[in-house]
């Protein structure tokens, strides 16, 4: 049951991205490009998503386990390392260049767009370089 729910959560997430317009890079760039005609739709996506997720996270706030007895993992770190900011700035740059962030790129990949395939492959390489080459090198 919990596996079906997990699958459905992914599906609902994707449907939300499609309906909201986030899967269209031209629309994302229309939001990020404040010069000329500005499309504020993405702010509405954030407002809609946060208003509902706020309630969801409030519901689990004092719970340590789900009804399926799995632990509920909420990030507890409060430290702000420089990596948080530098990494986010790099991410924002890539987001603006292509108009894709990870979720919408995966939905567009599922819809069969070869540009999304190229983006996702490069994204996975970027993740691998960070997690498996640089982090491993640092630990030596």
């Amino acid at each position: 049951m919990k596996n079906i729910i997990t699958l459905l959560a992914g599906l609902i997430f994707g449907l939300g991205l499609i309906i909201s317009g986030m899967t269209n890079p031209a629309k994302v760039i229309g939001f990020l490009d404040i010069e000329g005609q500005w499309d504020p739709s993405l702010a509405y996506v954030m407002i809609g998503a946060i208003s509902i997720a706020f309630l969801g996270f409030r519901f689990v706030k004092n719970k340590s386990k789900t009804i399926f007895d799995d632990p509920i993992h909420l990030p507890g770190t409060t430290h702000v390392p420089k990596e948080l900011i530098i990494g986010s700035v790099l991410f924002g740059a890539g987001w603006a260049l292509a108009g894709f962030c990870p979720g919408p790129a995966l939905v567009a990949l599922g819809a069969g767009y070869k540009e999304a395939f190229i983006f996702v492959m490069a994204m996975i390489v970027g993740m691998y370089i960070h997690d498996h080459l640089i982090e491993v090198y640092k630990k030596r």
Binding site: G16, Y44, V45, G48, G56, F57, H73, L74
Partner: peptide, 17 residues
């Protein structure tokens, strides 16, 4: 669409943690 995204995030944390 945003509300559906928020719903999905809520479902994932409530039922899968």
């Amino acid at each position: 669409g945003g509300m559906l995204i928020g719903l999905a995030a809520s479902v994932l944390v409530i039922y899968r943690g």
